[in-house]
Simulated assay, not measured.
Amino acid sequence: MDTVTGWLSSLDAYWFWLALGLFLAAAEMLVPGIFLIWLAGAALVIGALAFLLPIGVPLQILLFAVLAIATLYIGKRYLRDNPIVSADPAMNKRGLRMAGQMATVTQAISGGQGRVHHGDTEWIARGADAPVGARVRITGTDGAELLVEPVE
């Protein structure tokens, strides 16, 4: 008899599958990647089957392999058809959050480059020429530079 199947046969095999399923689910929470949760589901289903039906360990392993592949495929397809959409696409994107807000020119924008004050920070700005003290609207960002346009 194989060492693994012999070891599993000595336990009630369903405890192994249930523990494996819970371990994989916990690992998915610690390192989210939407991968281990499908394997956890397969292990939990095999644990339930092992508890309810008298099936041998080799068949349990085979069923787990088949079910793991099936759940991965179904999960991948589900996520492709129903992508996870952020409630706030601008989260952690400060430049996107500033778009549309006003700033004050602190160093004249000439030749397309200058500095503006927004909030509590002074930023490098690119845009149409504007004198010191002029109000400009932030239209976006390019790296750490703000893209601005004059306010009429």
Score class of each variant (00 low, 15 high):
residue 1 M to R: 12
residue 3 T to R: 12
residue 6 G to K: 15
residue 7 W to E: 04
residue 8 L to H: 07
residue 8 L to M: 14
residue 9 S to N: 13
residue 9 S to L: 10
residue 15 W to P: 03
residue 17 W to A: 05
residue 17 W to Y: 08
residue 21 G to K: 06
residue 23 F to C: 12
residue 24 L to K: 02
residue 25 A to V: 13
residue 32 P to L: 11
residue 33 G to D: 14
residue 36 L to H: 10
residue 36 L to D: 09
residue 37 I to C: 05
residue 39 L to G: 03
residue 42 A to C: 07
residue 49 L to D: 02
residue 52 L to I: 07
residue 53 L to V: 14
residue 55 I to N: 00
residue 55 I to F: 06
residue 55 I to V: 10
residue 57 V to K: 00
residue 62 L to A: 10
residue 63 L to M: 14
residue 63 L to K: 05
residue 65 A to Y: 02
residue 66 V to R: 02
residue 66 V to L: 13
residue 67 L to F: 02
residue 69 I to D: 05
residue 70 A to F: 04
residue 73 Y to I: 11
residue 77 R to M: 09
residue 78 Y to K: 00
residue 78 Y to F: 11
residue 80 R to N: 09
residue 84 I to Y: 09
residue 85 V to T: 15
residue 89 P to L: 00
residue 94 R to E: 12
residue 99 A to E: 13
residue 103 A to M: 06
residue 104 T to E: 06
residue 105 V to P: 04
residue 105 V to R: 04
residue 109 I to T: 04
residue 110 S to E: 15
residue 111 G to N: 12
residue 117 H to A: 13
residue 121 T to Y: 11
residue 121 T to K: 14
residue 123 W to V: 03
residue 124 I to A: 15
residue 125 A to R: 01
residue 132 V to L: 08
residue 137 R to L: 10
residue 138 I to P: 07
residue 138 I to D: 07
residue 140 G to T: 00
residue 142 D to C: 07
residue 149 E to Y: 10
residue 150 P to F: 05
residue 150 P to R: 15
